[in-house]
Simulated assay, not measured.
Amino acid sequence: MTTSLITGATAGIGAAFARRLAADGHHLVLVARDSVRLAERAQELRGRHGVDVEVLQADLTTDGGISAVEARLRGGPLPPVDVLVNNAGFGQRGRFLDAPVEEELRMLTLHCEAVLRLTAAAARGMRERGQGTVINVASVAAFMPRGTYAASKAWVVRFTEGAALDLRGTGVRFLALCPGFVRTEFHERAGMDAERLPRIAWLDADKVVAAGLRDLARGRVVSVPDARYKVAAGLARHIPSRLFGALSTTAGRRYDPKTQ
């Protein structure tokens, strides 16, 4: 029996991972803040795929929330976690200094501290068992200079690469998944006007997950789904940052229903 734990599992890429892994026969541990949505998602997946689904309500911007998930990853009497998907995250609209410092620190806690601690908690047991997978959801923004969000996702990529190198040969696999714009609740929750972006910029969450799992099977550590974003990530190293900043600034404008 393969057990997968997914954070931020009730919507977007996290929900897409839950659907895909349940379809593949994985038993699931779903982690999110909203207990009602967790219960609904669990019931749906049990009914559709016949897998066991645990739910764990936790706010990963808090020490208590991270500690609760760490405890589950360490196992004990419960089945060990074979696949960890660190997906939970949020964004901020606007430029640096537009958001309160307290919110920036919450973001760093979620994107960096939680990923570090949960990866460590899971990987120790995986190393002992000689197998396991950690997927850390980053962003194509990791390759572009764009405030705290991009910086935190750049950390996720480098951290994942470093962990993969340090645990090479142990049977533990790592993947940093770096999608571009994906149609989820992410932008609405951040107060971003996503409708200003052209349709061609958007990716489908299920296809992003499928692409990431294909890259994982090929032994890649960093996955950038879709050729368009692979090109963008490559160009980011050579084109002035202001050109890439223009797109994310447009997407970061506050959503105003009067303009729709």
Results as ranks from 00 to 15, higher is better:
A190T: 06
A246E: 15
P240R: 12
R158P: 05
R48I: 11
F244C: 11
T61D: 01
Y255F: 14
A15I: 00
R253P: 03
L175D: 06
V224I: 14
M126V: 07
T170R: 02
V83H: 03
F143N: 09
V51A: 09
R117G: 03
R242F: 14
L177N: 02
S241E: 07
G94P: 05
R254K: 05
P240D: 04
L5S: 04
R37A: 13
R242M: 12
R237E: 14
E40N: 10
E185A: 08
K230W: 14
G12F: 07
R199W: 03
A211K: 09
R124T: 06
D226S: 08
S139M: 12
Q260R: 13
L213P: 05
T109S: 15
V101P: 13
M126P: 04
H238F: 12
L175T: 04
P198R: 04
A99M: 13
Y255V: 14
H187R: 03
L110A: 06
A71Y: 00
F181A: 00
A120P: 14
A164M: 08
R196A: 11
A232W: 09
R93C: 06
T10P: 08
G94S: 02
A176H: 00
L108E: 04
V231T: 07
D82S: 02
V137W: 11
E104K: 04
V208R: 03
L243A: 07
